[in-house]
């Protein structure tokens, strides 16, 4: 098993930024890899075009949507996060966006995101865990903003379809002041 996996090695500050304890698979199932990628690309598109209902449908009932602040492996039960939504708060977020009076998304941000560097990581349960990088170009009334993240998903097959149980978006500059982030990241 050990030969099939690698962990992040390096100084503490790197572990703080990149995350501790993640075990990357060296071998993987080609078909699963493809399916996971297609899922994430679709999720990205739904976010880019603000298809709120279709995006909300991607979540499982026990979902966690987490965007930490000030690091990668913070404790969301102790530290402030930019977003730390359970399923009902995800739905509240969507309902707010759908009122049409969420001013910071009226007009909605114009978005295009590029997702890459997929790697499957070791999972402690039956969920499929995947990491990837994202770059998001946003333009809105304020101007143009580039966002970049390391993103981690737990995906699960439910009735033959993939669903998201967990999405963690670690913005690379989450230890700095950042502009309003009211689109779905």
């Amino acid at each position: 098993m050990a030969a099939e996996e690698t962990v992040i090695d390096g100084p503490d500050i790197l572990k703080e930024w990149v995350g501790k304890g993640r075990v990357f698979s060296k071998s993987f199932d080609q078909e699963l890899y493809h399916e996971v990628q297609q899922f994430v690309f679709r999720e990205a598109r739904l976010q880019d075009i603000h298809d709120y209902d279709a995006w909300e449908d991607l979540w499982t009932d026990d979902a966690i949507y987490w965007v930490p602040a000030n690091g990668t492996d913070t404790d969301p039960e102790r530290d402030m996060s930019l977003i730390y939504d359970n399923r009902s708060r995800i739905s509240l977020r969507i309902r707010q966006l759908k009122t049409g009076r969420r001013h910071s998304q009226t007009p909605p941000s114009q978005l295009a995101r590029v997702i890459s560097n997929f790697e499957l990581i070791k999972s402690d349960n039956n969920d499929i865990k995947v990491m990837c990088n994202a770059q998001i170009f946003e333009t809105n009334l304020r101007g143009d903003t580039m966002w970049a993240s390391r993103t981690e998903y737990s995906l699960r097959h439910i009735n033959g379809e993939l669903k998201m149980a967990y999405k963690k978006v670690v913005l690379i500059n989450n230890n700095k002041p950042i502009f309003t982030l009211s689109f779905l990241v």
Partner: peptide, 25 residues
């Protein structure tokens, strides 16, 4: 207190994202 604060404030907050939109406009 934390859960409610995280929902309301900061760049992604239900309240502050919109207040901030107003200051910028």
């Amino acid at each position: 207190l934390r859960q409610q604060t995280m929902g309301s404030v900061g760049p992604a907050g239900f309240l502050l994202a919109d207040d901030t939109e107003m200051y910028e406009r």
